[in-house]
């Protein structure tokens, strides 16, 4: 009897917390299809105002441009980060020696550096290079991150060395080994790194907000925060925009969930 009660309570707790967890997201999606008036009246069912909401935004903001910029910046950053950080992880682990380990320790210290502490020098750097308002200013500082290098190095550790030795004996040079052996074997790590990097890039706000000043360079999170400063807030239109910013990451997460969770877990197992 007590056991049954306990099981019941456990499930109740899980259901309630899962509901709280999902409710704001559902509310956002449902409200994106409702008029402001309906939302304020507490309507929780899908409506038919989605096209009106879309029109309202398109009249005032460059939504398509922001989505495009977000995609381009996040995709560009992800590709470069994967190449450069995987190379570093490979280099640090396969050719390991004392000097490289020392440098790795310095790199790891970088994990503690808050973005806000280096934003001003970075801003001045890009300003004097006349690169403000460019995609490169937005992505260059986060291509190489301590976390990603660490992730690749940690996962390289699990790769059997015999494979590399055998490849060397077969006459492959070091770069060929990286391209033809390491990259295919490490595919799961690349998938993990890709999901995490893309999501972080897509969601990045502080640095893009500082460095992307023009309306036509804005990314989605920057556009969202601009929406809120408009003096007449239209709930439906805003929440439709928020949905546009959120849906891609939710879809990516749902389809690549395993890799995403692996990435987070990577730092625990290490």
């Amino acid at each position: 009897m007590i056991k049954k009660m306990q099981t019941f309570l456990t499930y109740t707790l899980l259901v309630i917390l899962s509901f709280i967890s999902v409710f704001p997201i559902l509310w956002m999606l449902v409200s994106a299809t409702n008029t402001s008036a309906d939302i304020l009246a507490g309507r929780l069912l899908p409506g038919t105002a989605i096209l009106d909401n879309l029109q309202k935004i398109l009249k005032m903001y460059n939504l398509g441009g922001a989505i495009f910029n977000s995609f381009r910046n996040a995709a560009g950053l992800t590709i470069l980060a994967l190449i450069i950080c995987s190379m570093a992880g490979y280099g640090f682990e396969i050719y390991r020696d004392r000097a490289k380990d020392t440098i790795m320790r310095f790199v790891l210290l970088g994990m503690m550096v808050p973005t806000i502490s280096i934003v001003i020098p970075l801003y001045k750097m890009f300003a004097s290079a006349e690169m403000l308002n460019t995609m490169w200013a937005c992505i260059l500082p986060t291509i190489s991150t301590p976390f990603l290098i660490f992730l690749f190095r940690q996962n390289t550790r699990a790769m059997p060395r015999e494979i590399i030795q055998a490849a060397r004996i077969d006459g492959l040079n070091e770069i060929q080994i990286y391209l033809k052996m390491y990259m295919p074997i490490m595919r799961p790590t690349y998938a993990t790194a890709m999901t995490i990097t893309f999501m972080n890039a897509w969601n990045a706000y502080l640095w893009p907000m500082i460095v992307l000043l023009d309306d036509d360079k804005m990314t989605m999170p920057v556009l969202l925060s601009y929406l809120m400063t408009g003096y007449k807030m239209d709930y439906g239109a805003i929440l439709l925009c928020v949905s546009y910013c959120t849906l891609p990451t939710i879809i990516i997460f749902l389809s690549l969930q395993k890799f995403f969770v692996n990435g987070i877990a990577g730092s625990v197992k290490g």
Partner: peptide, 24 residues
């Protein structure tokens, strides 16, 4: 070659993280 592999990442971190710290 090992150094070559890790150089791009390390240079980027120095330029966009450690150098800004000194500048800050």
């Amino acid at each position: 070659i090992g150094w070559m592999f890790l150089m791009p990442a390390v240079v980027l971190i120095i330029v966009f993280m450690f150098y800004p710290i000194v500048q800050a």
